[in-house]
Write a protein that binds this DNA or RNA. Sequence first.
DNA 1: CAGGATCCGGAATGATACTG
DNA 2: CAGTATCATTCCGGATCCTG
Lengths: 146, 146
Amino acid sequence: MAETDVQEIQQTAECAAKSTPVGRAVMGRSECSAALTAVGDALYVIGGKWKLRIIIALTEGFTRFNELQRRVDGISARVLSNELKDLELNGFLVRTVQAGSPVAVEYILTDYADTLKDVLQSLREWGTMHRTNIKNRMRAASQATS
Amino acid sequence: MAETDVQEIQQTAECAAKSTPVGRAVMGRSECSAALTAVGDALYVIGGKWKLRIIIALTEGFTRFNELQRRVDGISARVLSNELKDLELNGFLVRTVQAGSPVAVEYILTDYADTLKDVLQSLREWGTMHRTNIKNRMRAASQATS
DNA sequence: CAGGATCCGGAATGATACTG
DNA sequence: CAGTATCATTCCGGATCCTG
């Protein structure tokens, strides 16, 4: 398991390209290894405490600002606002305004957000697994104590 | 896609349990919806700028401190040190010391780290996809300009 | 309701120097 | 080599107030 899986590395070529800030050339000291670069790119866009959670909330039908804030739980208005701008810039959602008495603003996921499906599902499965795992660890520990 | 997929939510029960800091009870205002909780748990342990990158580097055979630091590119010694401690606490790796002239320290991934395989692969695929996607966007933009 | 503007404290981080 | 200690800085994020 320590050695690199041959199947895992299909694109050794074209390494040493620009890395994280997708547009700019950064490339410290030839950070190669497709996986490192690719995951780095991914984390750059959807990393951080909130982005994925906001997207999940949106897939569940919470399209309004305050609904989102209540839903995501723990996020402040300012941070939510910033994150939404970020997500819009990256093409994950669109902001739509419909005039009215209390102006109605909706945040709708784009098709591009759907490309995150696999990421979200694997993360979710792992999170679930990890939680039950922790519970078992704690139960085992308390039994050892008693 | 706005409505919740029935297959997606298998564990509606037992929500409102303790959330992020796995041990403590946090539960703001009944943050439910399995996905939100599960992904929150996952992000709590493997979130952040570095954790996943370090794990990737370790899967590729960079077991020593300085090698890791060179490899992860951008991380400082102090941050790397802290992240490694964190990863060890969470059972993703073990630190082994072999005395000698220049003391040799190795960081080895545990089997538990292997459970992240799906997460890493999906993230990697998405990262790759996203990069080529951005390239195309930029090419299209430059053509429109010319 | 949907946010922007401002103030402010603490935590994270970078740089540098030092140790076994 | 494998880190730790210290300092300076930056930045994130909460709280509060304000607007349309």
